[in-house]
Design a protein around this nucleic acid. Sequence first.
DNA 1: CTATTAATTGAACGTTCATTTAATAAGGGA
DNA 2: TCCCTTATTAAATGAACGTTCAATTAATAG
Lengths: 201, 201
Amino acid sequence: MTGRKRQNAEARKPAILKAFYQVIEAEGFENASMAKVAKQAGVHASLIIHYFGSKEKMVMALVDHVLQTYTSLFARLPKGGEPQERLERLLSLIWSREWHNAASFSVVFSFLALSQRDPSVMDRVRNLYGHYRRYLLEQMVLLSKAGVIRVDDPKGSAEALISLSEGSHYFCRYHIEPGTFDAHCRHMIRAARTILNATAS
Amino acid sequence: MTGRKRQNAEARKPAILKAFYQVIEAEGFENASMAKVAKQAGVHASLIIHYFGSKEKMVMALVDHVLQTYTSLFARLPKGGEPQERLERLLSLIWSREWHNAASFSVVFSFLALSQRDPSVMDRVRNLYGHYRRYLLEQMVLLSKAGVIRVDDPKGSAEALISLSEGSHYFCRYHIEPGTFDAHCRHMIRAARTILNATAS
DNA sequence: CTATTAATTGAACGTTCATTTAATAAGGGA
DNA sequence: TCCCTTATTAAATGAACGTTCAATTAATAG
């Protein structure tokens, strides 16, 4: 039974990370041991060490993977096209199901807690959202010039928009009653439009 | 050295919880062992078990304590007085330093992660914010009647206000540059006023 | 077919974990 | 003073932890 099937090492890493992710989701970061991850991945714990070097490095690899998920989301934010249509696509992407369900809160919250004491994780989170912030600031200026929105403080408006969207994600996780997600998103988009003093579509 | 000083059991529990809190903040929830908490509190690990029964019960006690901190904050939200002044006090309390620094993010994030898989913790968080939601909804109606704000959907406005404030807490933890906290709060209060269609003070 | 390399396992390591049990010390009431 | 309750420690428990290392198996190259 030993050394049964052979796979490429690099191809197996994502499978192990997925198992790690699942164990965290099911049992919490504090209970996600190497043995449990190995069992979930159908592999021996020593193989994980062989691939990642240590548990800590595996944690960092998963942090990167989760942040990459958000990077991919941010990359889909509209950058061209008609201003009015760009605003619409922007708002409906931020308040979409896939945006809200991008990653497990169990995992994300654990990593945000980790970021509070690990400077390297903090930097990565900061850097990720830095792109988002700069994008929104840029759009505030562009959309304002195009007359689609009216803001006299683009930086403040971008901060408000980020806060509203992040807070909304948080809100949904705790206070949304079944079947009211779409209504909530409509409320938030309306609030966002009000903040931006935008002309309703 | 054994049985040195004697203190009331109930009086010592808070000291142990404080030590637990500090260890989580410094080393993370996943590394906060009984031994470390005992050392931080200057007692033996077995004494902690004697007081709390088990580690899990101690965790729940700390969850309650942290949530109680927020309950105390919410209790300070203005309920009477002139409507216009009430709105001002409401906004400046939500965007105040003490509101933002109410609890360590390391601890809070870990507990929010915990709430995702522990229904009893989830219920407590839900219940805590339920009060906040109901309070804001009530104020939306009252302030609207008084003509201080103009909202046609009080529930949606309350949701937007909560999202904006929660997201702002999150935002500050990652993206605030030194010395810009007050400016950020001014931006957020302004955005809140816009959402509420309030008359500026 | 053989030699080599890399994937994978199995067993063992020392450490730390939460918890239990027994022993000890301190204070309060009689 | 002595006793009883209880706070507190000390020591020991077995399980689980992350990690190491040698052994074993599968693919690959010659």
